[in-house]
Design a binder for these strands. Structure first.
Length: 702
RNA sequence: GCCGGCGUAGCUCAAUGGUAGAGCGAGGGUCUCAUAAGCCCUAGGUCGGCCGUUCGAUCCGGCCCGCCGGCACCA
């Protein structure tokens, strides 16, 4: 049995999950499910990266411990993976003991190889914040603050990735701290370094000799160009200016820094886990293109030093834009995967991400594009094919049962007799080739070649006109077999939809929750027409409901919500196991009220209060944000609201408003917001909710 | 500035030394088993521009323009 080990990056808990995290993890899930389907011994790893300065600071700002913050964001990731039907075998957290032990051992190995030494790290230090900043994070005097706000990352990966020793001189510019905007100064701190320069030769030779080690090939060329172009600088791998991390062995003043901690997770869950030793080296590390260098240059060098073989390959995928725009928090267009999955269904979302764009390239997300895929590909082509075939078959065969005595005689079909058979063989080959090359889009395209062919075949063979005849039986068996093919081939991509296809045509499910076939012989594409051994046709609900797009007038915003309405707690994960309607429409911008219902208990979770606005001022650099100080009756709160395009700060003090008082605090453009002010929106305008009687501040709204 | 990639039908993209295809959208037709789905037909596109090589170039080479990515640098 072949072994297959696939990993996602571990996601930094400084950020809530977004479409980029979902993309990487679903891709890994598809490949893991595919290999389980093939019968391979699979290990699929994901996790969270929980250490570092940013987490320590973010936690402090919220008055919580780093552990507490890490726990809650970690929980959000777990919820998302459940919502997206991710079949990971392990979920590692860098704060676990097992990981600390690995890192210590790994460190000792590199040290024994004389690749770790103590030196000085020179960086830009903000004394009031007690923080070192990298060049990229600093604000130069001449640069407007707004540019910085747009620098939000699109993808996972610890920020502050570069730990190189020396920074160029900056004499003309004052470099300011991104948090407090005070000038920083260049300062030295002791730091341990990794001898990256000493591994230069190994890296170049390895990547030259293993052309498949980095994919796509354009990315490999970039890494090789990087290696050949510049001398590698040794890498700072410890810090003394924060505590939240794994201490350096025998020198607890230092904490192990970013990559030397994070990358090692892949070994913790494999080589260092009893019974899983054989899963190292990993078959594939899936990463976003922004963290490719760390997963190739740094990671391969670390492994070499510590005496481990490198992963077989590292695959870098692209990024998603939203409605053609870069996704960023300040634009408020971040796509929340919970929301998309809830609104359109997990399987359609998974399908879209890998059908729309070649894996490796950048793609554009929009609700409109997703809806087009749902109606065109899933409902019209695939879903309708299933409906029409199942309908005819259930009438053709007595009591919807295909008896075990059934024989298949393609010779009754004339010149179309082997048409679908030939197409199935082509499609199978194309699909297997594509997945072998991690070309996920091509694999799905192959399946649709078969679906289209089958739809045409239904029209030409007209099986409903041959009810009860061998010819009708033969054409239906060809169609059912083609649907079985599609169902099996789609299992890794859309496990739920795949199971429902197979259930309708076989009367039972043949895949387990992890996509390992529970009936290997029935799932086997090389054993055609299992129907002839007897089965039931089960007419079920529509596979994918068509979306009614006629009412969609005007703009359809795809991502996010205005900052003031941002739901920091996120949407609740969709309840699993409800296989009726996979997709339904809700319009963020229209007035159609089609949101799912909530219970009175769910509503009561919200603490709504009357509040009086005391002060209001603009949030610098923002277009719409206003920082409010509100009175809750003895308690005052700071709240950020996106209302400046309608209300000027001057007119706000004194207004009575409705506040969501128990919303988790959040930072919006760097400003703490401890609640949310309610307003009705109508296109570009909005109206704050107020009271038509005199009500004191802090009163319950229900 | 250096390196790499791209620029083809309204959109997204594919292919090929002998003047180009797919999907979607749009228009027309048709069936009725089916989720007003399916199926069939319809795009006459200077294949970014110019110059070369060649009997012949969209595909080879050079230059230019535009876009994207990586690196460096400037601020």
């Amino acid at each position: 049995m072949a072994r297959f080990c696939i990993t996602t990056p571990i996601y930094y808990v400084n950020d809530v999950p977004h479409i980029g995290h979902a993309y990487t993890t679903i891709a890994a899930d598809i490949l893991a499910r595919y290999h389980r389907m093939l019968g391979d011994d699979v290990f699929f790893l994901t996790g969270t990266d929980e250490h570092g300065k940013k987490v320590e600071q973010a936690a402090a700002a919220q008055g919580r411990t780093p552990r507490d913050l890490a726990d809650s964001v970690h929980g959000r990731f777990r919820d998302l993976w459940r919502t997206l039907n991710i079949s990971n075998d392990d979920f590692i957290r860098t704060t676990e003991d097992r990981h600390r032990r690995t890192v210590h051992d790994f460190w000792s190995r590199a040290k024994a190889a004389k690749d770790i030494f103590l030196g000085d790290y020179e960086g830009w230090y903000c004394t009031p914040c007690e923080t070192f900043w990298t060049e990229k994070e600093l604000i130069p005097e001449s640069r407007p603050a707004s540019e910085l706000e747009n620098a939000g990352t699109l993808m996972e990966g610890p920020v502050d990735p570069t730990g190189e020793i020396s920074l160029p001189e900056r004499q003309e510019t004052i470099w300011r701290c991104p948090t407090c905007r005070r000038p920083t100064e260049k300062l030295r701190q002791p730091s341990y370094f990794f001898n990256l320069s000493g591994r230069w030769k190994y890296l170049v030779e390895h990547f030259e000799q293993h052309p498949d080690a980095i994919q796509p090939s354009s990315r490999r060329n970039e890494i090789l160009a990087f290696l050949r172009g510049e001398d590698l600088r040794d890498l700072s791998i410890s810090r003394t200016d924060f505590q939240w991390g794994i201490p350096v062995p025998d020198d607890s003043r230092h904490v192990i820094y970013v990559w030397f901690d994070a990358l090692v997770n892949y070994l913790t869950a494999t080589h260092y886990s009893p019974g899983r030793e054989d899963f190292w080296p990993a078959s594939i590390h899936l990463v976003g293109k922004d963290i490719l260098r760390f997963h190739t240059v740094y990671w391969f060098a670390f492994l070499k030093s510590a005496g481990f073989p490198p992963p077989e390959r590292v695959f870098a995928h692209g990024w998603w834009t939203v409605d053609g725009q870069k996704m960023s928090k300040s634009l408020g267009n971040v796509v929340d995967p919970f929301e998309v999955a809830q609104k359109y269904g997990t399987d359609p979302f998974r399908y879209f991400l890998f059908r729309e764009v070649p894996f490796g390239q950048d793609g554009n997300y929009s609700n409109r594009l997703l809806e087009a895929r749902i109606n065109g590909d899933l409902a019209n082509d695939l879903g309708n094919l299933l409906s029409r075939v199942v309908q005819v078959a259930s009438k053709h065969f007595l009591d919807s049962r295909i008896p075990a005595s059934t024989t298949h005689d393609p010779s009754t079909l004339g010149q179309d007799g082997t048409l679908l058979l030939v197409r199935r063989e082509q499609v199978k080959k194309a699909y297997l080739d594509a997945l072998g090359r991690i070309e996920l889009q091509a694999a799905l395209e192959a399946v649709w070649d078969l679906v289209r062919e089958a739809n045409g075949y239904v029209d030409r063979s007209r099986p409903w006109e041959h009810r009860g005849t061998p010819r009708g039986t033969a054409s239906l068996l060809e169609l059912l077999e083609s649907l079985r093919f599609a169902g099996v081939l789609l299992q890794p991509f859309m496990p739920g939809i795949s199971n429902r296809i197979l259930h309708q045509i076989l009367g039972r499910e043949i895949f387990g929750s992890s996509s390992r076939p529970s009936e290997p012989e029935t799932a086997d594409l090389d054993r055609p027409y299992p129907f002839t051994k007897g089965c039931s046709i089960v007419k079920g609900a529509h596979l994918v409901e068509r979306l009614d797009l006629a009412s969609a007038v005007g703009s359809r915003e795809s991502g996010g919500v205005p900052a003031a309405k941002m739901e920091q707690g996120g949407t609740l994960p969709k309840q699993a196991g409800v296989p009726t309607k996979e997709a339904k429409v809700t319009e963020t911008t229209s007035n159609t009220i089609t949101t799912s219902t909530i219970t009175i208990d769910e509503f009561r979770k919200m603490d709504l209060r009357s509040a009086t606005i005391l002060e209001a001022e603009e949030v610098p650099g923002s277009k719409r944000l206003v920082k409010l100080k509100v009175d809750l009756g003895g308690e005052s709160r700071q709240v950020v609201a996106g209302i400046r395009h309608v209300y000027t700060p001057a007119e706000l003090p004194g207004k009575k408003v409705v506040l969501v008082a128990n919303l988790a605090p959040a930072k919006i453009m760097g400003v703490e917001s401890q609640g949310m002010v309610l307003a009705a929106t109508d296109g570009d305008t909005l109206s704050l909710l107020s009271f038509d009687r005199d009500v004191g501040p802090g009163r319950k709204v229900k």
